[in-house]
Design a protein around this nucleic acid. Structure first.
Length: 571
DNA sequence: GTTTATTTAAACGTAATCTACCTAGATTA
């Protein structure tokens, strides 16, 4: 049981209450509470023990009591009773696009449908259209919606969606009627997974832009198309929304459609506090300086400009008010690349190919970190392999003025917390990346002990992909990150931000916490082929979301200084 | 159910779009 579980149960309660037809504000109260718990920076258990849960904004007496019950007993009577009172299929039925709580309840009551399968059958038999409040269109959309759900996950990796969004945007920008345009939503905030694409355009001629857009996405299904908004679904299942506003509305709309929702709520109420009212089109009320850009909008509200990545209501508004926002790291701050693989282990490109690509990318050093001996799954290097690689690196370094290759290794942390190479091997390496790849089913306590022991090994420089998660595929293994951060900070071990879009591990929410505990980081592509350095932009996205500056990240330093940091415990 | 402005009660986000009816309710963002 951790705060994520608690938050998920609160969210489910909100959905169930809505299905029950409860007071919508009660529903939102549970949604807000779920969000509040998820956003806690302190340990939930400690807050409960201290009895200060009720002081968390969004959590009152009733919900505090229920969370406490859940925490202490592992059960919540209210939740369990609620689950029992609602047909189990209702929750999956509301996930069908176009179906909300009201209509799900109607379908359940009139047609006795209680599962997605029954819903599909009823639709195919044409029973739904006969129902009052439904028609042929509704039935068709429900069946389409079910097909989309059956296709799989409703979220996609940002890396799969971003190129599509950027391509659409580039094409729209060529249109004369498009005056300003941007990708909004979670993509603009560099969130790791996204549900849909939000495109925002400023124009005086909305019909023209809409036509041009629909031509660009010819093969898509049109879900809605009006004067200010067009929604389509691409054949891949990805939903794309185009929003059209007048130029004078653009800064407000851009801010609004970038989100996040909790951030926007705070900004709106801030406007109210100052005698103004903010919506997606304007800032009305008290007179204020003209707003032509997002920066103007923040300024009028007494705030520094807040980068989109920070807009998650995790303290950015307070910091912007105090003029204390960090100067976020950018991709051009990165000087060197650490943690890459070659054909010596499971990489697809040779050492030379990786090196040449690193030169082309603009790096001044490249740390190779192929897998260690035990990693059979990845053709891990024996001591002899390592020696051969070392010789090849020496040859490269003797001949290249542009790029220095560092001798690293990604060494498995074995189940007992020892490393997969003996000391005589480790000491010959320039630096050591340590990570867990096997025996992921340990308890949290055991895993934490295992990793802690590894981090205390004085040869370890970087702890890589700290939770082992694979986005949309696999949860991370259980590990007490707070404990790990403490050890890493004390020992001077760097924590990796793995930039592979499938991992993005450490998670940005945790990066922010780790930074607060004095941890420093390495943003690593974990490249397995010569094109893999491009993933660094996603790692930088995570670093920026985690409030990191150039100073927080080791591979913004020149090679000698980065090495000195990574070898600080060897002396 | 929570918060806030007043101590019991009101507010809590709002606009656009769709679909089934011809203005309203549901859904979504």
């Amino acid at each position: 049981m951790d705060k994520r579980d608690a938050s998920r149960i609160l969210e489910e309660i909100a959905a169930l209450l809505e299905l029950k037809g409860e007071n919508p504000f009660k529903v939102r109260a549970y949604e807000n509470a779920a969000h509040a718990i998820d956003g806690l920076t302190e340990n939930l258990g400690e807050i409960i023990e201290a009895g200060t849960l009720i002081d968390v904004p969004g959590i009152g007496e009733s919900i505090a009591g229920r969370i406490t019950e859940l925490w202490k007993t592992g059960h919540m009577a209210f939740y369990e009773a609620l689950v029992d009172s609602i047909p189990p299929g209702y929750l999956e039925m509301v996930r069908v696009p176009g179906l909300g709580a009201k209509r799900v309840r109607l379908l359940g009551e009139k047609l006795e449908i209680t599962s997605l399968a029954e819903l599909k059958a009823a639709g195919e038999k044409g029973l739904i259209r006969a129902l009052k409040g439904f028609g042929e269109q509704s039935e068709k959309r429900i069946l389409e919606g079910i097909a989309i759900l059956e296709k799989g996950s409703s979220r996609s990796l940002a890396s799969q969606v971003r190129p599509i969004a950027e391509d659409l945007l580039a094409k729209l920008r060529k249109h004369a009627a498009v005056l300003e345009s941007e990708v909004g939503g979670s993509l603009r905030r560099w969130v790791e997974t996204v549900k849909d694409v939000d495109l925002l355009v400023a124009t005086e001629k909305p019909e023209k832009v809409t036509q041009a857009f629909l031509k660009l996405v010819e093969s898509a299904t049109i879900i809605a198309s009006g004067e200010t908004k067009t929604s389509v679904r691409l054949p891949s299942g990805l939903a794309v929304d185009l929003r059209l506003v007048l130029p004078k509305q653009y800064p407000f709309a851009l801010h609004y459609f970038t989100g996040s929702v909790p951030h926007n709520v705070r900004i709106r109420s801030r406007a109210l506090d100052r005698g103004m009212s903010l919506n997606e089109y304007e800032l009305s009320g008290k007179r204020h300086a003209p707003v032509r850009t997002e920066a103007d909008l923040f300024r009028v509200l007494g705030l520094e400009y807040i980068e989109p990545e920070l807009r998650e209501n995790r303290g950015e508004i307070e910091a912007a008010e105090a003029k204390a926002l960090p100067k976020l790291i950018t991709i051009s701050d990165i000087r060197g690349i650490l943690h890459c693989h070659t054909t010596y282990s499971d990489g697809r490109s040779t050492l030379v190919e990786m090196a040449e690509a690193a030169v082309a990318w603009g790096a001044s050093y490249l740390g190779l970190a192929d897998h260690s001996a035990t990693a059979r799954y990845a053709r891990g290097l024996s001591e002899e392999d390592l020696k051969r690689q070392s010789d090849e690196i020496d040859r490269w370094n003797a001949g290249s003025k542009k790029l220095r290759i560092l001798k690293g290794a990604e060494v498995d942390i074995l189940p007992d917390g020892t490393l997969d190479y003996p000391e005589r091997v480790l000491e010959k390496l320039d630096y050591v990346v340590a990570s867990v790849h096997t025996n992921l089913n340990m308890s949290e306590v055991e895993m934490t002990k295992r990793v802690t022991r590894a981090l205390k090994n004085r040869y370890v420089s970087i702890f890589a992909h700290p939770t082992g998660r694979l986005l949309l595929e696999r949860q991370g293994y259980p590990i007490a990150l707070e404990e790990i951060f403490k050890v890493a900070a004390a020992e001077g071990v760097l924590i990796e931000i793995n930039a592979s879009p499938h991992r993005l591990d450490l998670d940005w929410r945790e990066v922010l916490k780790a930074k607060g505990r004095g941890v420093r980081f390495a943003v690593n592509p974990d490249a397995h082929h010569a094109g893999g350095y491009a993933d660094l932009r996603y790692g930088i996205g995570v670093a920026r979301k985690g409030w990191l500056t150039k100073e927080d990240v080791v591979n913004t330093l020149p090679a000698d200084r980065a090495l000195a940091l990574m070898r600080s415990r060897r002396a």
